[in-house]
């Protein structure tokens, strides 16, 4: 018995010394050209597939993905964030990308094997040691679904035309803002100061958004002010009398014992983005965007303004629905 233990201890020590030598003297060859030893690729890939299958959200959580705005937003993000490695459908990928280990699959081929819930997990979490990055913002599953919507549309061949991957600056911004509705907000109704501050907050991650962090990182920070100026065109028609009847209006103007009145900080419809107001203008904003943002505030994902965090804390789903309908219906 004693000799068995002794033998095992000696073997363990030799093993440790061997491992230390491999790490310490650089004996393992990390060359991508040399590739993996036989069988390793199979083990890694099988681990990857099973890990995704185990962790993907249940299929019931997949929202409707055929909304054209959602698909278009996903396409716009894909154009600058994903196309570099996974390519654009119908076009060849660069020789350099194809020399990566592991080689990123061309997108049409990559999506063919996965269900939407699995694609969501992969896009949100990324894959370690494969070059596939995680979504740049935490708790933004809503944004990830837009990319999944685009990928699902790819499977059925119903994708919209993708914005050019070479767009830059204002042209890139405008490929979504102004073109796409739904989850993409209107910017023309806001003040330049507000828009500039948001660009900074997106870039720093203070306001978490994977899509906008990516977009803001493509523009030099010095240009934020001029971009904000360009988008805050003040084109929104001022609305003199927003209706003050109905559940959404009542909540917006008077609030309840649990919910503060939105108007007090966000201003009335006729004051188009009044400079004295604390919050962004809401009248005329996209319904889907408003509803999504309110949920993110309520759930604590957005927390860069203490007043808004407190204001949204007790919103119910009915409140959010009523408010987003009310504000989006006026001031278009």
């Amino acid at each position: 018995m004693k000799s068995v233990i002794l033998t095992l201890a000696v073997l363990a020590a030799l093993g440790l010394a061997g491992a230390a030598a491999v790490v310490g003297f650089g004996l393992y060859n990390v060359s991508a050209a040399a590739g993996h030893l036989p069988g390793v690729s199979f083990v890694l890939h099988t681990t990857f597939r099973n890990s995704v299958a185990l962790r993907a959200p249940p299929e019931e959580e997949v929202p409707p993905l055929d909304d054209p705005d959602l698909v278009a937003l996903g396409a716009g993000h894909y154009a600058t964030a994903c196309a570099g490695c996974h390519g654009v459908p119908g076009a060849a990928r660069s020789a350099t990308v194809r020399a990566m280990v592991p080689e990123p699959p061309a997108i049409t081929e990559a999506v063919a094997h996965w269900q939407p819930n699995e694609l969501h997990w992969i896009v949100e979490n990324g894959v370690k040691m494969s070059g596939m990055p995680a979504w740049p913002a935490r708790n933004r599953k809503d944004e990830v679904w837009s990319v999944v919507a685009y990928l699902e549309a790819l499977k059925t061949g119903t994708t919209p035309e993708m914005p050019s991957t070479r767009l830059a600056g204002e042209a890139y911004c405008r490929s979504c803002h102004g073109e796409v509705g739904g989850p993409v907000p209107r910017l023309d109704i806001q003040t330049p100061d507000y828009l500039e501050a948001q660009l900074g907050a997106y870039l720093s991650g203070e306001r978490p958004s994977g899509i906008m962090a990516q977009a803001a990182s493509l523009v030099p920070e010095e240009r934020f002010a001029s971009l904000a100026e360009a988008f805050s065109a003040g084109t929104a028609a001022p609305v003199d009398e927003a209706p003050r009847e109905g559940p959404g209006a009542e909540l917006a103007w008077r609030g309840t014992r649990a919910v503060p009145a939105c108007i007090a900080c966000h201003g009335t419809a006729s004051e188009a983005a009044a400079p004295g107001r604390k919050g962004p203008r809401l009248f005329g904003q996209s319904r889907v965007f408003l509803a999504t943002q309110l949920r993110l505030w309520r759930d604590g994902t957005l927390s860069h303004d203490r007043l808004m965090s407190a204001a949204a804390a007790e919103l119910t789903e009915e409140d959010i629905d009523a408010l987003s309908r009310y504000f989006s219906a006026t001031g278009q």
Partner: peptide, 21 residues
């Protein structure tokens, strides 16, 4: 009071501040 949004939660009757929280 009005521009800081105090009226979202507090009412001051006779002004536009009508909050109820």
């Amino acid at each position: 009071f009005l521009s800081e949004g105090c009226g979202a939660c507090h009412a001051v009757r006779g002004t536009e501040a009508v909050g109820q929280v």
